[in-house]
Amino acid sequence: MRTWSEDHPKARLLERKQEAIKVAARELFLQHGYANTTMEMVAARAGVSIMTLYRHFRSKDILFQAMIEHLCCHQAKPARETFWVGSPAEVLHRLGQVRLSQILDPDEIALYRVIIGAQEQFPEVGQMYYHLRYEKVVEPLSRYFTQLDQQGSLHIPDPASSARVFLSLLQGTIIERLRLGVEPMSSDEEISKHIEACVAFFLAAHRPAERAPEANSQV
Rank of each mutant, 00 (worst) to 15 (best):
Met41Ser: 15
Ala76Cys: 06
Glu6Asn: 11
Ala11Trp: 01
Gly33Trp: 00
Ser87Asn: 12
Val98Tyr: 14
Lys77Glu: 07
Val42Ile: 15
Arg45Glu: 03
Val23Gly: 01
His32Gln: 08
Pro78Cys: 06
Gln31Leu: 13
Lys10Leu: 09
Arg58Met: 10
Cys73Tyr: 08
Gly47Lys: 05
Val114Asp: 03
Pro9Glu: 00
Val23Asp: 01
Lys17Ala: 09
Ala20Thr: 03
Leu30Pro: 04
Asp7Trp: 06
Glu120Lys: 03
Gly86Asp: 02
Leu14Arg: 14
Val125Asn: 12
Ile68Ala: 14
Phe122Asp: 05
Pro106His: 04
Ala89Leu: 14
Thr38Trp: 01
Ala25Gly: 15
Glu40Lys: 14
Lys60Gly: 07
Leu100Trp: 04
Arg12Gln: 09
His8Asp: 02
Tyr54Glu: 08
Gln127Tyr: 11
Glu120Leu: 02
Phe57Ile: 11
Pro9Ser: 02
Leu63Asn: 05
Leu28Tyr: 00
Val48Ala: 07
Ala66Ser: 13
Val85Phe: 15
His56Gly: 06
Ile109Gly: 07
His70Pro: 00
Gln102His: 15
Ile50Cys: 14
Tyr130Met: 11
Ile103Gly: 08
Tyr129Pro: 02
Gln121Phe: 12
Lys22Trp: 06
His70Asp: 03
Ser87Trp: 13
His74Lys: 07
Leu100Glu: 04
Val114Ser: 03
Met51Pro: 15
Phe83Ala: 07
Gln18Phe: 06
Phe83Asn: 07
Gln121Trp: 04
Arg55Trp: 11
